[in-house]
Design a protein around this nucleic acid. Structure first.
Length: 197
DNA sequence: CGTCTTTGACCAGCGC
DNA sequence: GCGCTGGTCAAAGACG
């Protein structure tokens, strides 16, 4: 298993094509771009962007041993601490992580924000919340409300640094961002109206 | 009334 | 088999 986290922006393309660094001084994200588009586009062409309502401190693509699969291995700082404290527990934990089958792409965002749930343009329904070991904050589970879309995300605040929220996205949206559609719908209506002449 | 959140119960996988 | 842990389900309630 391997976790890739980029710190200097210029190193992003060198390590993995889907790894980025977001900094507060970076330009605004274009309104027609969603988060999935961000991590799937070419980092050499795409500049780092700022997400509204939060400064994104890092974006991590989670990769399994199978190089063809970007999968769901998550090892947080708290887990690393646990490794040092108890090797036996670590073995158990490592096996739990490794047993997770390679699934849809997972991307982890770390953002500095006072709000747990960031506005990423999509609508989410909360379907669960669990208290997690070695963390004073619970982990929340969300699903995209679009009927044909099964993208999930997990949101958890770091106990180590309470200003940081870790958001893990699983899967890719198979529908346009609803906020974008709301923005574009008046324009589309106008175009339809003009097309009649 | 439809949508969403809350929360306890349940399940699966693993080590012992 | 039991306990631990993370993830999901589903009933009940809140809210606009």
């Amino acid at each position: 298993m391997e976790k890739q986290e980029i710190t200097p922006p210029e190193a992003a393309a060198a390590i993995h094509p889907t790894s980025y660094l977001f900094t507060p001084q970076t330009p605004q994200m274009p309104s027609d771009m969603d988060w999935a588009t961000l991590f799937l586009s070419d980092p050499e062409q795409a500049p780092p962007y700022e997400i509204p309502n939060a400064s994104v401190t890092s974006v991590t693509t989670l990769i399994s041993e199978d190089q063809n699969n970007v999968s769901n291995c998550v090892v947080h700082e708290d887990d690393k601490k646990e490794e040092e404290e108890d090797r036996n527990k670590d073995k158990r934990r490592a096996s739990r992580i490794s047993r997770r089958k390679a699934g849809p792409p997972r991307v982890e965002f770390q953002t500095k924000s006072s709000e747990d749930l960031l506005d990423d343009g999509y609508r989410w329904r909360k379907y669960g919340q669990k208290s997690v070991k070695n963390s004073i904050f619970p982990r929340s589970y969300y699903r995209c409300t679009h009927h044909t879309c099964n993208v999930k995300k997990q949101v958890q605040r770091l106990s180590k640094d309470t200003s940081i929220v870790v958001t893990t996205y699983e899967g890719i949206h198979n529908h346009p961002c609803e906020q974008i559609m709301e923005t574009l719908s008046p324009l589309l209506k106008q175009m339809q109206f003009l097309a009649r002449f």
